[in-house]
Simulated assay, not measured.
Amino acid sequence: MSVRVLVAGDDFVLNRLLIAALGRATTADLDIREISLPWPSVPFGRVAEVDEASGTEEQLIEALDGAEICLTQMAPLTERILASAPGLKLFGISRGGPVNANLEAATRHGVAVTYAPGRNAQATAEHTVGMILAALRRIPETHADLTAGTWRGDYYEYDRVGPELAGSTVGLVGYGAIGSLVARMLRGLGAEVIVHDPYVKPDLVEELVGLDELLSRSQIVSLHARVTAETAGMIGAAQIAALPPDAVLVNCARGSLLDYDAVCDALDSGHLYGAAFDVFPSEPIPAGSRLLSTPHVVLTPHLAGASKQTAANAARLVAADAGRYLSGQPLLHCANPRGATA
């Protein structure tokens, strides 16, 4: 008897990638149903009690009829959806964290939720290094001047130029899959890397320091921490003031780690040389945000992890756990292990 699978991809993690990965992960007889969600053309948002989701509860309830497995990136998994899908046993979210799933409700309903840790680590690390270089060398600003017909020779004045990355001290706040890759890339470019991460073992890092020391020594600070009760808002006005003059601050992790008004104040005053952000406290950035008018800020729209390899990795990781489920093996990336045994 075939197993019904709902594949709910979008315009990044495509249905065809998920289906192809599933075909490589299992030889089971599958009855595959597809729906396509509108992300990223339509920004994700809150759906009932879950965040960062695409699609509606009604759409998922209808599509999950009879499904035992769902593979998706952005589809919501809410209490209402779970109550309407009694046959569902596995919900695979092809993201670095299952933020669009109600894990407590999934566990109560006996649904295992898997995810795809590290799927975008390489892409995000590369983007981070690019953002650092863009901020140091004023690349977006000089490009904008040239396309507007202005040749700005004054960018060559000594008091306007930034430091080279080689020989600079870069402080990384967080040393997980992304932070450790950023460190390797920066060392390859000749930077000195120091790290603050209370969860990492000292023998895994060349130089592990406290946050205060990292801030006082770093010409460039890049954030790579997860958001927790302890890390939310961890970089505010006091921490920015502790940075050396003309430092650069980069955030490609999560917007809630940082006080962006304090960054704008430091840029306006000249204390910071520059900043580069891929994530924001509210996305999309609201019209009238200070970030859109403050000088020396490089902005990208939360796309650090956007690469073809990321999409393929995401599909492969959740499909692999679907294959394990179908063959009775333990799940490798289960966010709620009790849900797998309920």
Rank of each mutant, 00 (worst) to 15 (best):
Gly149Ile: 04
Ala253Leu: 09
Tyr155Cys: 08
Tyr260Gln: 04
Asp145Leu: 11
Glu207Thr: 12
Gln239Asp: 04
Arg254Tyr: 08
Ser168Ile: 00
Tyr158Lys: 14
Thr231Gln: 12
Leu257Asp: 11
Ile220Cys: 03
Ala237His: 13
Arg226Phe: 14
Val200Gln: 05
Leu272Tyr: 08
Ser282Pro: 00
Phe280Ser: 01
Gly274Arg: 02
Val195Ser: 06
Tyr175Arg: 08
Val227Ile: 15
Ala238Asn: 14
Gly167Arg: 05
Tyr158Phe: 12
Gly171Lys: 07
Leu186Glu: 06
Tyr273Lys: 13
Ala262Met: 10
Asp259Arg: 09
Thr231Arg: 10
Trp151Ser: 01
Trp151Lys: 02
Ser180Pro: 01
Pro245Met: 13
Phe277Ala: 05
Ala232Met: 14
Cys252Arg: 00
Gly210Arg: 09
Thr228Asp: 05
Leu215Glu: 09
Asp203Val: 14
Pro163Arg: 10
Ala232Pro: 06
Asp265Cys: 03
Cys264Trp: 08
Thr150Ile: 13
Pro281Asn: 13
Ser168Asp: 01
Glu230Asp: 11
Val173Glu: 04
Ala247Asp: 02
Val279His: 11
Val195Phe: 06
Glu230Phe: 00
Ser269Tyr: 03
Arg152Pro: 04
Leu211Cys: 07
Gly167Glu: 08
Thr228Glu: 04
Gly153Leu: 14
Pro163Lys: 03
Glu157Tyr: 10
Val227Trp: 06
Val263Thr: 12
Tyr156Trp: 15
Asp261Ala: 15
Trp151Asp: 03
Ile178Tyr: 10
Gly190Glu: 05
Ile194Pro: 05
Pro245Gln: 15
Glu206Ala: 13
Pro281Gln: 12
Val279Ile: 10
Asp154Val: 05
Asp261Phe: 07
Asp261Lys: 11
Leu204Ala: 11
Ala148Gly: 12
